[in-house]
Design a protein around this nucleic acid. Structure first.
Lengths: 110, 110
DNA sequence: AAATTCTATCGTAATATTGCGATATTAAAA
DNA sequence: TTTTAATATCGCAATATTACGATAGAATTT
């Protein structure tokens, strides 16, 4: 089918999965890394840095924005994008607690 | 197209993206949560727990196994799945250092 | 006002993912 | 050896994602 049975899973599970999905493309990782490095930049700068066209970069920015990891400030004709620090830290914790669920002894030796 | 330009991004970026992709489905999150809770179980148990058919669960298990987050031990006719603790901790660090890249002051107030 | 600049959206093509029935595979059990 | 049980794989259909050219929209510049 190709349709994820969203309604069959918990809100928690869907939320974490969709956060992961936002990170599930090298271009979006690259965008985030660039923003982390230079704090903020406009879409056009990302188009210069990435091996992708302007519409494609814009599409990836939209995906990151839709989960709240970045935000865009309109500055004249351009849009300055940057990390949303508050949301970023929430997401960091979300993944952190997920990964920290593993208890030390837990391991099937095989 | 629908084809990610993998070769145009760094190995690092592709690796992190593919780890995220493994987590980018609620069923796979649910599988990992279940394994975290009960340490190990066979595929059939997961089929009972999840709202998905056996082939679909098997497919999700394969995806998790391919990135190394879980491993399967053959036990007679069944396969006991569990978290690969060593790999798990590596992935935890991978995401951890990524998220920790954000410097405290960094934020565009808008 | 017209031209320019920058970004978003539309439309489309190609590939990927998801889900499941049917079936193959493998090992234990009868 | 035949049956049973458990899992993996195949094949297919439906939906999602990725990428980009063309174009629309919005604000600045000329």
């Amino acid at each position: 089918m190709g349709l994820t049975k969203t309604e069959a899973f918990s809100e928690d599970q869907n939320e974490l999965a969709s956060l992961a999905k936002a990170l599930a493309h090298p271009a979006r990782i690259a965008i985030l890394q660039h923003l982390l490095k230079i704090n903020a930049c406009i879409c056009g700068d990302l188009v210069d840095v990435l091996p992708l066209s302007q519409p494609t970069v814009s599409q990836h920015l939209k995906a990151l924005k839709s989960v709240g990891l970045i935000k865009g400030c309109i500055e004249g004709t351009s849009v300055s994008y940057c990390i949303d620090a508050a949301r970023w830290n929430l997401v960091r914790e979300r993944f952190g607690t997920f990964f920290d669920t593993l208890v030390a002894e837990q391991d099937c030796s095989c």
